[in-house]
Write a protein that binds this DNA or RNA. Structure first.
Length: 683
DNA sequence: GAGCACTGC
């Protein structure tokens, strides 16, 4: 196997890899080595590829309402266009929406440098969750959710003259919602301008989508392409499909390593288990190469989201002289983390994706083929420092069959929170909302049912006052908001605040990947476990953390993730303030776990399961077979008769996560309406 | 016995 037929990309694809890269500037989350620090900032700005298009962009924005900008990584679109607009004296604010916090922060920092101003000044600022600018900067970088929030108080975005949606090709949940909302706003505010920045080939679709059909005389949307700065990347495909991409990755790494080609290697796989397995296999080879005293030595590092922080940092460290670096990563390395000095990329051609199923109300993690856009993005990771190579573990024929773009998140997501927010923005009939890609009707129906059961909407689908409106304003899942807003009446709001905050953060427990300490970690975790289940266990962990004085040493001793706990504190304080705003008294029930559990059922009642005599759990609605997730404290102890859960994830089986032990009588006592309710009229 | 990646005043 691993018989590669080298070939260049087709002309239509090569554009992204053409130009020489001699200045590396911040573009989105990508970092940053500036070889031309000695040059003036103005000279540096003028070297960017987008500079040649400066006047054309300004002209197009005079003439058209929507500019679809196809700009490849490194062209400077996210930092330069806002500055061009300010220089051309466009009035009011320029708002730029980014899918990730780090992108908003680093872009604001870069533009502050370039304009010789401070971040959070009158010129440049940013707004992300828990960290907003108070003034109104001329150029404002923000995360997507922030702009949606702002629409709630300012539906026509009157503070802005231009909105730029960045990284649209990623098609995040909020990108799609913002596109739908912007389409509406553009019709009502003809002087407003929208820039839709995408790295890929969906430009035509975007143009068609934003063209205002009321305006039959002329187009209101226009496309402009700007080339990026990348070294050429030579792409190779396998001649025949390969049976196993883990083995395939190992083989290619060894083959590159034994060839004369220098440079670090980055391989994309779909999940932690695959990454760990590949790392193990490759380390065996690396050890035997070293033991044999051969020259081609290399070091292998894993990279994935749930890896402890100090282990993640390994991928940025220099390897000792004479060692090549090999990084085996999940999709984190595609957009969120940029690993420097990569020359060879290996792409398995697959990605793990979450899909929500509205009929069963469950999420599934599925391994799917990547899109062409993704494959291109992965390949581009090889061309940042010098000409690179991308080895695709699939045939060219299969590549051509891939979809152009990743299936938008909105068609595969739980829509409860989205619909709540749309309704708060005055979109009464969600079915008529012009999504760029409409989500499946079952998912909308399922969301409306849950919202109705939670009392957030009435039988006509209207938001209830005040509960529904309050729920739309809280930045947590509606199920949890319901619990938070009920907790005052139950007299346990302090405890609930803690539990909900703990649920906002992944990986409370540190999970070392090495054998010895991973066993210790598991033993330590037992200390906090209680028979009432995971949610009360989280409460225990937090209380112990608080008692220790919120210290790092406590976390270290108990294998609790300190960074996560600090985030919990941050979120807890924020949510606490919001509770006060809604006049929910902050009181403690002083250890009465039954009160806390009952309050949790106020939101989780629809996620109830009972232990079937066959020994597995079944959902109360629908009798779907469920299992306790191995991470749950209930996995190792006698399984209780009745539970509610926060989440179901379908991997090898349907697993319930974050469980709470309940009594069946509570369901009828606390949610009598739910198990015999009718469906909402809108469906 | 199992854990794609983001995000929200």
């Amino acid at each position: 196997m691993s018989d590669f037929k080298p070939r260049f990309l087709k002309p239509s694809d090569t554009s992204s890899f053409l130009d020489r890269n001699d200045t590396t500037l911040v573009e989105s989350t990508d970092f940053i080595y500036n070889r031309h620090l000695s040059q003036t900032i103005q000279t540096q700005r003028q070297r960017l590829p987008i500079f040649n298009n400066r006047n054309h962009i300004l002209y197009l924005l005079e003439k058209y309402q929507t500019l679809v900008l196809v700009g490849e990584t490194g062209c400077g679109k996210s930092t330069q266009i806002p500055q061009y607009l300010i220089e051309a004296e466009w009035p009011a604010q320029i708002g730029i929406c980014e899918p990730r916090r780090v992108a908003a922060l680093s872009l604001a920092g870069r533009v502050a440098d370039e304009t010789g101003s401070l971040v959070q000044s009158e010129t440049v600022g940013y707004a992300v969750r828990f960290d907003a600018c108070t003034n109104k900067p001329k150029i404002k970088y923000m995360t997507e959710g922030i702009l949606i929030r702002e629409m709630m108080s300012d539906p026509l975005l009157k503070d802005y003259s231009v909105i730029m949606l960045d990284e649209v090709h990623e098609r995040t949940l909020y990108t799609d919602i913002l596109m739908g909302l912007m389409k509406k706003i553009l019709k009502r505010r003809r002087e407003l301008r929208l820039i839709v920045a995408s790295a890929t080939m969906d430009a035509r679709d975007l143009q068609t989508y934003f063209n205002n059909t009321d305006d039959k005389m002329k187009d209101t949307a226009v496309i402009l392409s700007v080339h990026g700065r990348q070294y050429p990347v030579t792409t190779y495909f396998v001649k025949e499909p390969i049976p196993c991409y883990v083995q395939g990755t190992v083989d290619i790494v060894l083959k590159i390593n034994s060839s004369k080609q220098a440079g670090d290697i980055l391989a994309f796989l779909t999940g932690q288990e695959e990454v760990d397995r590949t790392v193990r296999l490759l380390r065996e080879h690396a050890n035997s190469i070293e033991a044999a005293g051969k020259k081609e030595k290399f070091m292998v590092y894993p990279m994935y989201g749930s890896l402890p922080y100090h282990e993640q940092m390994n991928v940025f460290k220099r390897t000792p002289d004479g060692f090549r670096k090999v990084i085996i990563a999940t999709n984190v390395a595609e957009t969120s983390v940029t690993i420097p000095n990569i020359v060879h990329v290996i792409d398995c051609g697959f990605v793990k994706m979450k899909w929500f199923n509205g009929q069963t109300h469950t999420d599934s993690l599925m391994i799917m083929p990547v899109s062409k856009a993704s494959a291109q993005q992965r390949a581009g990771r090889a061309g940042r420092v010098k000409p690179g190579h991308c080895y695709r573990l699939y045939t060219e024929e299969d590549y051509l069959k891939l979809p152009n773009t990743t299936p938008p998140e909105i068609i595969r997501s739980n829509l409860t929170y989205v619909i709540l927010q749309l309704k708060a923005l005055g979109i009464d009939n969600v079915l008529k909302f012009k999504f760029p890609n409409p989500p499946p009707i079952e998912n909308i129906k399922s969301a409306l049912e849950i919202l109705y059961a939670l009392d957030a909407i009435d039988i006509d689908g209207e938001l209830t006052k005040p509960l529904g409106f309050n729920m739309a304003e809280f930045a947590v899942d509606p199920l949890y908001t319901k619990i938070l807003l009920s907790s005052g009446d139950f007299g346990c709001s302090e405890e609930i605040l803690t539990i909900i905050s703990m649920l906002q953060v992944e990986s409370i427990y540190a999970k070392p990947s090495t054998g010895n300490s991973s066993i210790k970690a598991r033993i330590q975790k037992r200390n906090f476990e209680v028979a009432e289940g995971d949610l009360i266990t989280y409460l225990n962990v937090f209380l112990a953390f608080a008692k220790s004085g919120y210290g790092n040493d406590f976390c270290h001793r108990n294998y609790v993730n300190y960074k996560s706990m600090k985030r919990v504190l941050e979120i807890r304080e924020r949510l606490g303030k919001m509770m006060k705003n809604y006049n929910v008294p902050l009181i403690s029930c002083e250890g009465d776990t039954e009160i806390v559990s009952k309050c949790l059922v106020m939101g989780l009642f629809s996620n109830a399961a009972y232990l079937h005599y066959s020994g597995v759990y079944k959902t109360v609605r629908g009798d779907i077979e469920l299992h306790v997730h191995p991470d749950s404290v209930l996995y190792t102890i006698t399984q209780p008769q009745w539970v509610v859960f926060c989440e179901v994830i379908h991997t090898t089986k349907l697993y319930m996560r974050d469980l709470l032990v309940i009594k069946d009588t509570w369901l009828l006592e606390l949610a009598p309406h739910f198990y015999h309710k009718t469906t909402v009229k809108e469906c």
